[in-house]
Structures are given as structure tokens and as C-alpha cells.
């Protein structure tokens, strides 16, 4: 009987360790946020840029680190060093864009097109006021939105 109790305690202990290890492993390997299927805050490139350059804490908490769906006019289509597609959406500030790094490429997109892009909003960084270079609002991990 005593031996049986010991065995119970031991197996319970082992089970706990295994469960903890599994939970730890799952937490460590938790997948990235599913941007493509996330519910998004809908806005336009012009509004998003204006809201985030105003430096309002309320707007920041509403938009930064959120999945947003932005519609706007394509200013240019570029590539970064890694070969990812970069789509710049026009704003009312010349030289300032909504800068989208695509996780899924949009084919046949060209300047002048009106499109809608879904991505994770990282926020706004100012450019250099000394040389009159406005900053951009950045969206990362972007997908075409249909």
C-alpha cells in the first residue's frame, strides 16, 4: 500500500513536469499573429497618416500595434534589400507615405491604382526636419485585402 502511494505521488509529479514542459514548449512556439484573418481597424492612408503624425496618445493607442486595413492610392512600388515588396500609399503630405512591407506580394500593382492593404501598424517615425524629409507611417507583415 505504501509503495502504491509513493508510486502515485511520483507519477503525479512526473505528469506535472510533463504538463509544465508541454505548456512551456507551446508558449515558446506560439505562432505569430494571424494578420491575414484578423479583424482590422478600417481607415484610409490619408487619415491614418494624419492621425499618427498628430502625436495624440489616444490615436496611438487606437492604431499602433493594431491590425489595420488601409485603402489608398499607390504612390510607388519598391523592393527592400531582402526582396520584399514595398508599397507606398499616398498621403496629403508630399514625401510622406504609408509604407507597407508585404508578406504576400500583390502582382500587377502600379502607381495610381487604388488598393486596400491589411497589416500590422508599427507607428510613425519622423524624417529629418533639417532636410525637409517627412517621415512615414509603417505597416508590417501586410496582405492584400479583398
Amino acid at each position: 500500500m505504501k509503495r502504491k502511494t509513493k508510486r502515485y505521488i511520483l507519477s503525479g509529479f512526473i505528469a506535472m513536469i510533463v504538463i509544465a514542459a508541454v505548456i512551456g514548449f507551446m508558449m515558446w512556439n506560439e505562432p505569430h499573429r494571424d494578420i491575414k484573418n484578423a479583424t482590422a481597424v478600417k481607415t484610409t492612408a490619408i487619415l491614418l497618416y494624419n492621425n499618427l503624425t498628430k502625436d495624440s496618445a489616444r490615436m496611438k493607442s487606437k492604431l499602433v500595434n493594431q491590425v489595420v486595413e488601409v485603402s489608398g492610392e499607390v504612390k510607388s512600388v519598391l523592393k527592400n534589400q531582402k526582396g520584399d515588396q514595398i508599397i507606398l500609399l499616398k498621403t496629403n503630405t508630399s514625401g510622406g507615405s504609408v509604407n507597407c512591407t508585404m508578406e504576400e506580394k500583390i502582382s500587377n500593382v502600379k502607381p495610381g491604382d487604388t488598393i486596400s492593404i491589411k497589416g500590422l501598424c508599427s507607428g510613425y517615425i519622423g524624417g529629418d526636419p533639417d532636410i525637409d524629409l517627412p517621415g512615414d507611417v509603417f505597416l508590417i507583415r501586410c496582405y492584400p485585402s479583398t
Binding site: N80, N99, T101, S122, I125, D128, L133, G135, D136
Partner: peptide, 19 residues
């Protein structure tokens, strides 16, 4: 991959900014 950098080749001023 969203780093803003400005380089002035006349003065050598160089800056980087990222989120």
C-alpha cells in the same frame, strides 16, 4: 526593414531611426 536613414555626403552626417 523599416529603418529611416539619412546620409549627407557633403558633411558626413549620418542618422538612423527605427520603431
Amino acid at each position: 526593414n523599416q529603418v529611416i536613414s539619412v546620409l549627407n555626403t557633403e558633411t558626413g552626417a549620418l542618422q538612423f531611426s527605427l520603431l
